[in-house]
Design a protein around this nucleic acid. Sequence first.
DNA 1: GCCGATTTGTCCGTATGTATC
DNA 2: CGATACATACGGACAAATCGG
Lengths: 243, 243
Amino acid sequence: MPKIRYLEIYRDLKTKIETGEYEFQELLPSENHLIVSYGCSRNTVRRALASLAAEGYVQSMQGKGVRNIFQPTAQASLMIGGIETFREFASRNGQAPKTEVLCFAELTADKKITRRTGFPIGSQLYYIQRLHYLDGVPLILNHNYFLKDVVTNLTQEIAENSIYDYLENELHIVIVNSKREMTVERMTEIDEKYLNLGEYNCLAVVSSHTYNSEGVMFEYTQSRHHPDHFRFQDNAIRRGLSH
Amino acid sequence: MPKIRYLEIYRDLKTKIETGEYEFQELLPSENHLIVSYGCSRNTVRRALASLAAEGYVQSMQGKGVRNIFQPTAQASLMIGGIETFREFASRNGQAPKTEVLCFAELTADKKITRRTGFPIGSQLYYIQRLHYLDGVPLILNHNYFLKDVVTNLTQEIAENSIYDYLENELHIVIVNSKREMTVERMTEIDEKYLNLGEYNCLAVVSSHTYNSEGVMFEYTQSRHHPDHFRFQDNAIRRGLSH
DNA sequence: GCCGATTTGTCCGTATGTATC
DNA sequence: CGATACATACGGACAAATCGG
């Protein structure tokens, strides 16, 4: 529970928007109103609003005001722009998660692994293959590679629960940054065996390189999603930044 | 050419990073150094750095500095987090774009269209079906719906070139905001006919709702991408914002 | 069309807290 | 411990866009 003002304001406005306290397309109170009602400076209010705008919750218009453009229809998606673990998503939606560890191994990065993961040749790694279920349905087949230098003493038992809990709460690793890439790929034999793909012969693949606060890439993960249960949401803002 | 300080600094640092003026994993000059070298305030420098961090170019570490984490390998992707038109992408990569208009129609939103696009029932729309080629290869099949109230006097000729050029330069519509959703879907007969899908029986589908500066949604587009040429990149930052 | 009030956009200077070295 | 570096916050100033009288 941090006492960071702009985050408090951000969260307060966010829940007010999500619960419908402001109508869709309605203007929020002006910055000056928010300043007095929260008792803070203009910069602080503006920072909270900027975060909401980046997530597609509001749109601010010079000279007019800040409009609520949040539409709740899309909320049940598995991946929103952000780093969220499988268990966090499941609990957010009140569904029962289950994780099955298919493979737990330690290995050294050779040329092939290096090309795939980006770890330097010779890196000592954990390789874990896991199947994630939601309400009994297999949704995601995960291939995790963790750098043993950073992620120490990983066990199969931890892998069956939440690895990220272990990283953050036991090892106190601060996850900062994750570069992700989404593609569509043909299914492999393993996909076919574990995910119930039916008519599909492809799936959604999310590859991610994750960095800690030291700036070292300590995780490479490839998540292979069943098409029926994959949806990625994003809000793009056209700024003058483009080039 | 705006004289907005933080954008100038943002762009300057960005090109310096892209051209390798700072090594991968190297620290950028400290904020205080940047303040004197750009002759501006701390807030302005921080704003530029924040934009770079949001795009995965840098990572700032309290007490240590700001590290360059840009890796150029990933740059050739069709979709980076941002709003970019097909022609912008093609020219950025020096390839030859071609656009074929398969269908150009005007229609009124019925129940089915409303459910799909989000436009109110009875809205007057342009519906355009287009096939985008790059270097002679068909990559994307686009289904565009434009609100006639906003996008006036659209013609087939405009559709064969760049609709966005027309919107921005002729109609002076300011595109602000685009909510996108990525999924994997089974191919349709139309996909099969125009895109050369080979062994694939699915493709990557990007649906987007685009808003102008008035806050009205004036475009719904569904882009159906050949799996071989679809890649979406994203940089996620783990903040305390999550919940 | 003009003017003034309102609202957001940009920018500055300063102060204090926290993490690293 | 002190110096350095980033994080948060405040207050003030002016510009630009919008809207109503």
